[in-house]
Amino acid sequence: METAKTAPLTTTSPSPIAQALKRRPRTVERLIQTGLLICAAVSILTTLGIVLTLLRETILFFQQVSIVEFFTETRWTPLFASKKFGIWPLVNGTVLVAAGAMIIALPLGLLAAIYMSEYASENMRRILKPILEVLAGIPTVVYGYFALLFVTPLLKSIFPQTQTFNGASASIVMGFMILPMVASISEDALSAVPRSLRDAAYALGATKLEVSTQIVVPAALSGISASFILAVSRAIGETMIVAIAAGQQPKLTLNPLESIETMTAYIVQVSLGDTPQQSLAYLTIFAVGAMLFFMTLVMNVISHFLTRRFREVYE
């Protein structure tokens, strides 16, 4: 990109010396450029590796288990004597926990973003942003500890029927873990709305609340919705909080106070046991992983599309 524009400066001069320089073989330069290209291509190889690994083991899995059972059976018991391979209980657990986390992360994250972009003074923003970044930088295993040993006892004292492992505590803690991400991406989108739009609304007599919610938020909607979708994708893929706090009982339930199991927690459960390669249990985690990868990929692509296509371009 940069060189495409600058290269002619060094090469297109009519003098004989420049001609000779141009013809001089630049072996080292070429080698280096090729080496750099290979490093950039590692990312493509990674994607390829992920897709091929998941695909290979998943195909092996579906040679032993019918794909119809995978999508129609309502029980998931691959580690029991009577094996059932229905993915829905795990999907149910994943979606239940993610939905709970979104109830916390989306409204609070958006409100925090509006506050930091529209209301906070420059000084206040300089203090608040790093604190929220610290919240985002804490390892997820720490959040898991907090969910199991602080939030769950708290829930139990309010709702005595709460089980020791439950979806709700995982949801709550995950919501606060994801909040800074929503706030940060949404704030970027809100700050990118040009000042002239706000000024125009103020000139018509709108209050700050009306400007924020009726002018700035709609104008930044593509960025905000992209942050929401990324948040969902993050919640679906989150592992340690649910592995620690949500339990290991895959079931179809909407009760957040019961023990459930998510797709990621199942992968952890199997990985902790000593599963020999190519055993059926070993293959299940790749089938579950493929499902998980597919779900997050769809989310990420939608988010990418939203930021690209629906971005309002000002000035």
């Binding site: 690994t53 989150e238 992968i267 952890v268 990868f293 990929l297």
Partner: peptide, 27 residues
């Protein structure tokens, strides 16, 4: 090709970390 690499990198950043674990296990 460049655009493909760029889209690819931003997609990889969104892949759940446990999927990398499965890649590591298989590869």
């Amino acid at each position: 090709f460049t655009r493909f690499i760029e889209i690819n990198i931003s997609n990889l950043a969104g892949v759940p970390s446990i999927i990398y674990g499965l890649l590591g296990l298989g590869l």
